[in-house]
Design a protein around this nucleic acid. Structure first.
Lengths: 202, 202
DNA sequence: GTCTATACCATGATAGAC
DNA sequence: GTCTATCATGGTATAGAC
């Protein structure tokens, strides 16, 4: 069955909030992206902030789905973390144009001092917790959360540089280096993991 | 002598663009930050975009000044790069609240598809070129620009995570690790540098 | 559920007095 | 150089017909 009007509003808003930012996206913009009049929004949502809440919920759900898929697809924790790192390649074109959807939304809401800021950060937390679980499974229970945060941060930095400098080679290099870094953490943890041990250096 | 009105507008706008974002900052906001009426802006600037241009110019000049200071203050390239890394500590409170001034401005202008986007990115380039020079001086002429971009990206990632998770310990840990990383790159380059050689691993 | 019409306000920008 | 109107535009939001 096709999307309900409400679902369609949220999907279009999700896309526009990503490409233009939340504040810069007007009801007219969303209306132009589908077949609906401006006034009709208020049957489905009382305020623009409520649309934002719905978009964040959608992104949370989509994130959880993606992580579940990676959990099933990856044979080992290293593979699964590799799925995470590889989104920088898979979504390269969009990231170069608009940055990371999570990072840029959180940054904007922080500046707007918006009430939904903490909700948006929960998307980061979902990634962080999942990555931490992977590092635990890797045998790094002691510093799993630190490693998760470090990796999340590095991917954010690569996304920011990709947007600023439009350098696809840089992204590829960093992705490779992050994969090596994960393998090295795994190797440190002990040889009970698949031995992809490599040196960390170039 | 005190600032001219024009200079004061640019300074107040610089601060507000950082804390609230460019688009979210109105003439009224800037006017409220000093003693001036809204209409008077247009004697000094024809459009809001021209204020943005002036702010970017100011940031470029301030950045160059800062880099010159680091150039003079640091005894070795490792020390100088250390100055760069340490701004994450020095500006920690502001970064946690509003992110990196350069990164968040570039991200916003990219989404707005704003004409000044490329100008804003030049601030990044100034950092990048300076870091590259430091890595060249370190004996890494072969991959100096890659290392510069990697380090710039890492600092951006740390800033993004600091804003999202408000974790001062994380920032300290990452700063330490980045310093170690620089020392390791220096050690790889050869022992003609001050021997602060440490292993890269935790 | 969807539409049109409209209220209301803040914005960037202009004109002209002082 | 600075001010006080004032304008046109576009935003969120509401009311009410269909």
């Amino acid at each position: 069955m096709p999307d309900s009007t409400r679902e369609q509003i949220v999907k279009v808003a999700d896309d526009l909030f990503y490409r233009q930012g939340f504040d810069a996206t007007s009801f007219s913009d969303i209306a132009a992206g589908m077949q609906i009049s401006r006034g009709n929004f208020y049957y489905h949502f009382k305020t623009k902030d409520q649309i934002l809440d719905a978009v964040i919920d959608l992104r949370l759900a989509n994130t959880r789905d993606m992580l579940e898929r990676w959990q099933a697809d990856g044979a080992t924790p290293v593979d699964r973390i590799g799925c995470f790192i590889s989104i920088l390649i898979a979504n390269q074109a969009k990231i170069m144009a608009y940055g990371c959807p999570v990072g840029t939304l959180c940054a904007e809401l922080a500046k707007l001092d918006h009430a939904a800021g903490p909700d948006a950060r929960r998307i980061f937390s979902v990634f962080r917790d999942w990555l931490r679980d992977q590092f635990v499974a890797l045998g790094r229970a002691g510093d799993a959360d630190d490693l998760a945060l470090t990796l999340l941060g590095r991917s954010q930095g690569v996304a920011a540089m990709a947007t600023a400098f439009q350098d696809a080679d840089f992204v590829r290099r960093e992705v490779k280096d992050m994969q090596r870094w994960v393998a090295a953490r795994a190797a440190e943890a002990g040889p009970d993991q698949p031995p992809i041990a490599e040196n960390e250096k170039e």
